[in-house]
Design a protein around this nucleic acid. Structure first.
Length: 882
RNA sequence: GGGCUCUUAGCUCAGUUGGUUAGAGCGCUACGUUGACAUCGUAGAGGUCACUGGUUCGAAUCCAGUAGAGCCCACCA
């Protein structure tokens, strides 16, 4: 499928990306084969929500994951990128509910559960995999035939089995406790789903009369309406102001209930009036005080956060309306002491953004400590490793303090809880009788729990339930545990920690040994990207504008060791420019290639010319560095090594030296090596820039059907084709060329004008070596009259440079400006003197000589000697000017 | 209140176990387009590595403290 090479075309990402994605997908290159016998490499992709659209976070994490997947595929692993979609309980229910209301005027509750859930399924089938069309644009090499859904048949079975197993293990229980209640969605949520935000509020000081009829006690509260559920007043045991009141009672205003005054060390003496109204039914800390003192727990809120019947005359009012009325009533009764402005943090639902109301509710819980302890040990022992390491501390902190997990949700979209109740005469749950935990209906007439499970109760099974667990499938045997998880830290507790616990408990193995935590994408000012702020950058727009390869490359380059990325769209210019460079560099030799011809080098390494030995040496060094960096998930380093090699070495030096002069053809042997090196670099780049590399790979040689860059063998270090001496010699030549160019620039020598140069080196051997490469200097420094020798004399009226201990004279008759030259030399001398001083200071330090390693000392001595020699040359040259 | 991260060139950021007078991209200055690329090339300017102290022969790098910025967790009603 050779493309035409006669007419170099400009780089246009959109022209190649769809074409090559289709090539991969239709060619089956993404497919995973459980029977291949190759060593597995597995990444469980965090399943996007069914409501999801591609955002920059996906783009970053997919760029990282796909790079790892593609690299390992090229290295001969059987790769599996576990993919699928999460049903995302609350989020999806909300989206569909809103849509039905807006577009069809339908209310969920009026529709009924079965009809509503049907509509969510319809919605899922219609919109559920939009994100995968978007991920194809990114170039994700996913086996799309294996995608799963967290509510598909097998997954549902796994979730239910897990519930039953945990119940039988004694790790699931049901109970009435204070929960985080989200009145908007009318469901319980877990602590992790609650955000605390600072809000302006008030502190109401309220006087509670004593039951004796004389005197009163004053409390301060931010939520006066909860007083309806007060069952005590608490003061600090050491608070002298109130010591006489402890044990007596107060009368709850507006309600008339008599409540005890108790002492508890929880109370802060210096806050408010030092007395605390205790509301066990609607406050976490008060609940605990209530437990300690055996207080009654009263609940005065309905599920929709209106005041319940227990709230007497306020029943039916919304909590905020009730608050106003209660405050007014207190004021009227002369019991409102004062109102202060007060800024404090309040809990809100991360889903609905509604204010959370703590209240008592009957829910299902998972007992966490027995699951957490083994999960802690495995990370402590190093069986599981975090990259970067510091995230393990967050993990420890959370798991060491983990609280039991409320898993029931009062939603309709999700996995039904596999618990069955006897029904009363009305078909309602009869709480008076025992329930049965069972996947299937255990007895006719029993009714299933109305609630569904927290979304994360299915997600935590992701790495194995996707492979057929609990069946012992070949897939499961081959691909579990996974190799590495790539994720953001935002779901460390929600998902990663629970996945480790679940994996261990249910399969007996850790779900993966490596966890690579990426930074998060922020906007230019470091804020989270969000719809409400409107500061999001759409990856699809960026792909359109810069190309997918450019977007991926830039993201990986910016993604350093878990640091957040403050993203500005102009960052993608770096990737785009690089892609353009790659494309155009091909044309340097590509335009000379004969169609259908396979150029292979005949020369051995020793027969290569210097710059060729050098570029092969640099290639080997780069391959080594890339492999090393990738093994530690330092992909930004891997990528910058390749970038430097390609741009600064291959293009700026190697290509400049081997490309034919205008009008001439390219030497076949040189072409063969150029193709060889370029091909290796293309392969190194493929994991990061898959489209452009695939496109170019096919242009490099005639390819067999079924061959592709995506499955080409990963480059390996070839020690026999690497030569440090050659590399060093070339480096010296580079320094000489740069020096001559610098002189030219300083004296404004026109670019086209060729000049004479005399190079005086330190020994005959080097003179020969430099002489042999004279065409490099002539070509890249614009020199037409080059003399090389030992101890050559400085021509008159010439600029003199000292390069790596050698002297380079640039005669500039008529152009030389003694003033400029003096300034230049003095500057060089000053620099050199400063350098020499610092080195000599070290060498004069007995501590250094006594304690530093011998090779470090030797290096310093060499540096000093070199610097002295160079300084001597510079000074002589300066004197000659006078 | 506890913990974590960051502070390096005008801007955005790299810098792997401490060892050449610190690097990149962008921006800036000068010069340069009849064939790879102006999404480019060549040369250059630009940094007391936040501050203070300590460890060390040697610190951008390790430790302590200070000052800013941000994040996470827990939350005084």
């Amino acid at each position: 499928m050779a493309e035409t090479t006669s007419k170099p075309s400009a780089y246009n990402p959109s022209e190649i990306e769809d074409h090559w994605y289709r090539f991969w997908e239709e060619g089956g290159f993404f497919n995973t084969d459980a029977d291949s016998g190759k060593e597995p490499f597995v990444i469980p992709m965090p399943p996007p929500n069914v409501t999801g659209r591609l955002h920059m976070g996906h783009a970053l994490q997919d760029a990282v994951q796909d790079a790892l997947i593609r690299m390992r595929r090229m290295q001969g692993y059987e790769v599996l990128w576990i993919s699928g979609i999460d049903h995302a309980g609350i989020a999806t229910q909300n989206v569909v509910e809103r849509k039905l209301r807006d577009e069809e005027g339908l209310e969920r509750k009026e529709m009924g559960r079965a009809a509503f859930v049907d509509r969510v399924w319809d919605w899922k089938k219609k919109y559920g995999d939009i994100i995968w069309q978007q991920k194809r644009k990114l170039g994700d090499s996913v086996d799309w035939s294996r995608t799963r859904f967290t509510m598909d048949e097998g997954f549902t079975r796994a979730v239910q089995d897990v519930f039953v197993q945990l119940y039988e293990d004694g790790l699931i229980y049901r109970g009435n406790y204070l929960v985080n209640w989200d009145p908007e969605n009318q469901t319980v949520i877990s602590n992790e789903e609650v955000e605390n935000v600072e809000r302006d509020g008030h502190l109401w000081w309220i006087r509670y009369p004593l039951a004796s009829g004389e005197g009163h006690i004053t409390i301060a509260t931010t939520r006066p309406e909860t007083m309806l559920a007060d069952t005590a007043i608490a003061v600090h045991p050491a608070d002298d102001r109130y010591s006489g009141l402890v044990g007596r009672s107060a009368v709850l205003p507006l309600v008339g209930r008599e409540i005890p005054i108790i002492s508890d060390a929880y109370v802060k003496m210096d806050f408010g009036a030092g007395a605390l109204k205790v509301t066990p039914g609607h406050d976490v800390n008060d609940f605990e005080i209530g437990q300690r003192h055996g207080l009654e727990t009263i609940s005065i809120l309905n599920a929709d956060a209106t005041i319940s019947e227990a709230g007497g005359k306020y029943a039916g009012l919304d909590r905020f309306v009730a608050r106003k009325e209660i405050v007014a009533d207190l004021a009227a009764a002369g019991l409102l002491v004062k109102v202060e402005d007060y800024r404090h943090s309040v809990p809100i639902s991360s889903r609905s953004k509604g204010l959370i109301e703590p209240l008592i509710s009957l829910q299902w819980y998972v007992k966490m400590k027995p699951l957490a302890d083994p999960a802690l040990d495995l990370v402590r022992e190093g069986t599981v490793t975090f990259y970067p390491d510091r995230w393990k501390n967050e993990y420890f902190r959370w798991l060491e303090n983990v609280r039991d997990w409320p898993i029931s949700r009062q939603l309709w979209w999700g996995h039904r809880i596999p618990v069955w109740y006897h029904a009363d005469a009305n078909g309602e749950i009869d709480e008076g009788r025992d329930f049965l935990v069972s996947v299937d209906q255990p007895l006719p007439g029993m009714v299933q729990d109305e609630d569904v499970l927290d979304t994360w109760f299915s997600s935590w099974l992701w790495p194995f339930a996707t492979l057929g667990w609990p069946e012992e499938t070949p897939q499961l045997k081959k691909f579990y545990p996974s190799t590495v998880l790539v994720s953001g830290y935002d779901i460390l507790f929600f998902w990663i920690a629970r996945m480790i616990m679940g994996g261990l408990h249910f399969t007996g193995e850790v779900p993966y040994r490596d966890i690579f935590i990426t930074g998060m994408i922020k906007d230019k000012q470091g804020r989270w990207m969000s719809k409400s702020l409107g500061n999001g950058i759409d990856p699809l727009d960026m792909i359109e504008q810069y190309g997918a390869d450019a977007v991926r490359f830039s993201l990986v380059l910016l993604c350093a060791q878990g640091q957040d990325i403050k993203l500005d769209p102009t960052k993608f210019e770096m990737g785009r420019n690089f892609a353009n460079k790659i494309w155009n560099a091909f044309n340097v030799f590509g335009r000379f290639m004969e169609e259908g011809k396979d150029y292979r080098r005949k020369r051995l390494f020793d027969e290569l010319e210097l710059v060729e030995k050098w570029i092969l040496t640099r290639l080997s060094q780069t391959i080594k560095a890339v492999d090393e960096a990738a093994s530690r998930y330092r992909l930004n380093e891997a990528v910058s090594h390749i970038y430097d090699l390609f741009w600064s070495d291959f293009c700026d030096w190697y290509l400049e030296l081997i490309k034919p002069v205008p009008g001439e053809e390219m030497d076949q042997e040189k072409m063969a090596l150029a193709i060889e090196v370029y091909e290796a670099m293309i392969k190194l780049l493929h994991p990061f820039m898959p489209f452009i590399t695939e496109a170019l790979w096919h242009r490099l040689r005639p390819r067999m059907d079924g061959d592709a860059c995506i499955v080409a063998a990963w480059p390996e270090v070839n020690a026999s084709e690497s030569n440090a001496d050659a590399a060093e010699l070339f480096r010296v030549l580079q320094a000489m060329i740069t020096g001559i160019r610098s002189v030219r620039s300083q004296y404004n020598v026109p670019p086209g004008k060729r000049i004479a140069v005399k190079i005086s080196v330190s020994d005959e051997g080097l003179a020969g070596s430099v002489e042999a490469q004279r065409q490099y200097i002539e070509r890249l420094a614009g020199v037409d009259n080059l003399a090389v020798g030992v101890g050559l004399e400085k021509p008159s009226a010439s600029a003199a440079l000292v390069v790596e201990g050698h002297e380079v004279f640039v005669p500039l008759a008529g152009m030389i400006d003694l003033g400029v030259e003096r300034v230049r030399l003095r500057k060089e001398i000053d620099q050199k003197v400063g350098f020499l001083n610092s080195v000599e200071k070290k060498l004069a330090n007995e501590g250094f000589l006594g304690r530093a390693p011998a090779e470090v000392i030797e290096k310093e001595r060499q540096k000093a000697a070199d610097a002295r020699a160079e300084l001597e040359m510079l000074r002589t040259n300066l004197q000659d000017l006078n």
